[in-house]
Every structure is written in structure tokens, then in C-alpha cells.
Amino acid sequence: MRRARPWLIGAALVVAAGLVSGVTPSQDSLVGPFLISGGPADTVTSRMLIASVSGASFADRVVAADGEWEAEGNWLVVELAVSAAHTEVDAEIPLATLHLDGRVFHASERAPESLLQTRLHVGTDTVGTLAFELPEGLRGGLGELRLTHEYLTPELDDVVAITLPLDEAPTASSIELDAPRVGAP
């Protein structure tokens, strides 16, 4: 029994160490963002933003409303109504991402008629679009649109996360991107 005791104690310590490392949260979960989630028909309210999706469509070509910019490819255009929650200081969306099939896509900064970096107002919606250029053939799945009021994904702050069922999204040969406007959707 004296010879087995050190082995039993050692085995118990290894099991205890495995349990401790298994329940210890990762670094990302300690400083990562808090997702404020909602469905495609929900209005999601975070600390800085209030957002709702009014539609999502695929297109082979997107064109600026003034006709001075256009691009061909596999585009997902998301229509949104967004406002500032409590203050107009720094009230904008500098970063919008689409999480789809384990990949992350950023909203295109090439499209001049975009909600990116548009000033938002308290109590009044700003209606506009975000355009995502996707790889060829990616036209479905369950996506998640994430909006934040910071240039980088925030640490220990909230992020609007809206689920987008893209299998039901319509397809158009061309979509005209209108400039963001203040008012009801």
C-alpha cells in the first residue's frame, strides 16, 4: 500500500489539474465582446446602437445610386434601420461583419453608398445598406450580422448580432445602393 500511495496521489493531482484547466475560461471569453443577439425580425438594442434588418438580397452586380461606382461579383446586400441608443457622440458603425460558414466577411468600404461610418441619431432611424462581397457560389446558409460602434471588435463591450437565414434571400442581377437617409424604413 505504501508503494501505491504516491501513484494514487499523483494520478489524483493529474485529474484535478485537468479539471481546473477544463473549467478555466479562455482569454477571449475574459475580454471578448458581449453579443446582444436577435433574429431577422427583431430590433436589437445594445449600449450604443439600435438596429433592425429589413431585408437581405444577393446580387451579381451592385451600383451606386449616382451611377458613378459599380462592381460585379457575388454580393450580399443587407438593408438596415439603425439609430444611436443614448448619445450621438461617436454614434456610427465603423465595423460591420458577416459570420457565415465559419468565415468572417467585412462590409465593403468600396461602396460609397454605405451605412459604414454614417452619423447616427438618437430617436431617429438612419436607413441604408451594407454590401458584403462573398466568394463565388456562397449564396445560402445561416449568417450572423455583427455591428459595433468601434473600429475594432471591442473588448468587454457589446456587439449587435442579428441572425440572417440566407437560404431564403432573393437574388437579383443588379441592386442599386441608395445613400443612407434619415427617417422610417
Rank of each mutant, 00 (worst) to 15 (best):
residue 62 V to R: 02
residue 114 S to L: 06
residue 43 T to W: 06
residue 55 G to E: 12
residue 102 G to D: 07
residue 66 D to P: 02
residue 37 S to A: 15
residue 106 H to R: 15
residue 15 V to K: 01
residue 31 V to L: 12
residue 47 R to A: 11
residue 39 G to P: 03
residue 98 L to H: 04
residue 58 F to T: 06
residue 38 G to V: 08
residue 107 A to H: 03
residue 5 R to L: 15
residue 5 R to N: 01
residue 107 A to I: 10
residue 79 E to V: 01
residue 57 S to F: 00
residue 46 S to L: 00
residue 28 D to K: 06
residue 90 D to N: 15
residue 84 A to F: 04
residue 86 H to D: 15
residue 34 F to G: 03
residue 42 D to W: 12
residue 98 L to I: 09
residue 64 A to N: 06
residue 11 A to C: 14
residue 64 A to C: 10
residue 71 A to V: 00
residue 62 V to Q: 03
residue 30 L to S: 11
residue 66 D to F: 02
residue 106 H to D: 08
residue 26 S to Q: 08
residue 14 V to G: 10
residue 32 G to V: 11
residue 13 L to E: 03
residue 5 R to M: 08
residue 35 L to C: 04
residue 77 V to Q: 12
residue 22 G to P: 02
residue 23 V to A: 14
residue 7 W to M: 06
residue 113 E to I: 00
residue 65 A to Q: 14
residue 78 V to Q: 10
residue 77 V to C: 11
residue 70 E to I: 02
residue 98 L to R: 05
residue 68 E to F: 07
residue 35 L to K: 03
residue 115 L to T: 01
residue 82 V to W: 02
residue 81 A to M: 06
residue 84 A to C: 02
residue 51 A to S: 14
residue 18 G to I: 02
residue 37 S to M: 11
residue 82 V to H: 03
residue 111 A to C: 09
residue 88 E to F: 08
residue 80 L to Y: 15
residue 36 I to L: 09
residue 46 S to R: 05
residue 49 L to M: 07
residue 73 G to H: 01
residue 112 P to M: 01
residue 114 S to Q: 06
residue 46 S to C: 04
residue 19 L to A: 12
residue 58 F to G: 02
residue 59 A to D: 01
residue 65 A to R: 11
residue 102 G to A: 09
residue 39 G to R: 10
residue 66 D to I: 00
residue 65 A to F: 08
